[in-house]
């Protein structure tokens, strides 16, 4: 059984804003019956103000697909179209207190439905610009299509390089065999092209983020920047965060106020850790400072 948050369960068992919407003037249909997800989002937009007055959904899909759809309608109601377009799939997942990595595509589908519905309202055509592949790296939610694209674009030949470019394989390492298979497949295609790739190497691969060596001062600054960028959100909820110690890959912080001991403490730390990993281009662990005193 998936480890669904209470919020996901709530939005699945008692979804909000379901069924057809009378007088909808923006409708977005997205999804794929092959992978078992399909979503129709219906908007009622005030033509004067462009405010979304009402939003309904119909979804064929699993628990998290239905919950993501329900959450989406709740998030966008009352927003203007431009405000609504700022809603990311991560916002939908955050609203639900997180989704399992295998289920993040449900939140992506929600965002796509939103784009499609707004395009429909504006009389534009919306085209899906990404293809979804099988999930390869479960630690960082990277799928096969993305890995293959990056391998191809940058002429990658090793699992280590794939990890540096995409993070895939940088966690538990159980997907290394699958990554190697993708590398082999692309390499075979290259050699089938008559060694074209070998003769003309991929044009100047962009410098991978993880390779950019930071000095320990720059690294510390970066950590501060990320934490500072998150603080306002926590302060708004009556909490706060402070960095206590940085020891190698372990970053110790104090969660204060409403955050301390809150049921969401673990999820909050997880979210910040993810942002830190992205910013630093390396794996780090974010730990509560109380562990520091226990260890020392």
């Amino acid at each position: 059984m998936w480890d669904y948050s209470a919020k996901v369960q709530e939005h699945f068992y008692n979804p909000k804003n379901t069924g057809p919407l009378e007088n909808a003037n923006g409708v977005g249909d997205v999804g794929s019956i092959k992978c078992g997800d399909a979503l129709r989002l219906m908007l009622k937009v005030d033509p004067q103000t462009e405010v979304i007055e009402d939003a309904h959904f119909q979804t064929f899909g699993c628990g998290s697909a239905i919950a993501s759809s329900s959450a989406l309608t709740e998030i966008i109601k009352g927003k203007t179209l431009d405000e609504a377009l700022q809603v990311s799939n991560q916002d939908i997942a955050d609203y639900l207190d997180g989704l399992p990595p295998e289920k993040m595509h449900c939140s992506v589908m929600g965002r796509e439905a939103l784009q499609a519905a707004i395009a429909n309202y504006r009389g534009e055509e919306w085209k899906d610009d990404h293809e979804e592949g099988a999930l390869v790296c479960k630690c960082f939610a990277i799928d096969a299509v993305m890995i293959e694209d990056v391998v191809r674009a940058n002429g990658l030949v090793s699992v280590e390089e794939v990890t540096n470019y995409t993070k895939a394989g940088g966690g538990c390492s159980s997907c290394h065999e699958a990554i190697e298979e993708i590398l082999e497949k692309v390499a075979e295609e290259w050699s089938a092209e008559g060694g074209a790739a070998a003769a003309t190497p991929a044009p100047e691969p962009a410098k991978p983020a993880a390779r950019a060596q930071l000095t320990s001062y720059q690294r510390m600054r970066k950590i501060e920047e990320v934490v500072e960028s998150i603080r306002p959100t926590l302060v708004k909820d009556g909490g706060d965060i402070e960095i206590v110690e940085v020891s190698g890959k372990d970053i110790y912080v104090n969660l204060k106020g409403a955050c301390a001991g809150c049921m969401m403490e673990q999820a909050t730390l997880g979210g910040i850790q993810q942002k830190l990993i992205e910013a630093l281009g390396e794996f780090v662990r974010l730990l509560p400072a109380k562990l520091l005193t226990e260890i020392h």
């Binding site: 979804p15 999804g31 992978c35 979804t59 899906d128």
Partner: peptide, 25 residues
């Protein structure tokens, strides 16, 4: 089924292609 875009009040949407055509795949 009440939540499903493939389903209308009393049964499946007659012509799935026409009634519900998601934008990809």
């Amino acid at each position: 089924r009440k939540l499903s875009p493939y389903w209308s009040a009393n049964g499946p949407v007659d012509d799935t292609e026409r009634a519900f055509a998601p934008a990809y795949a």
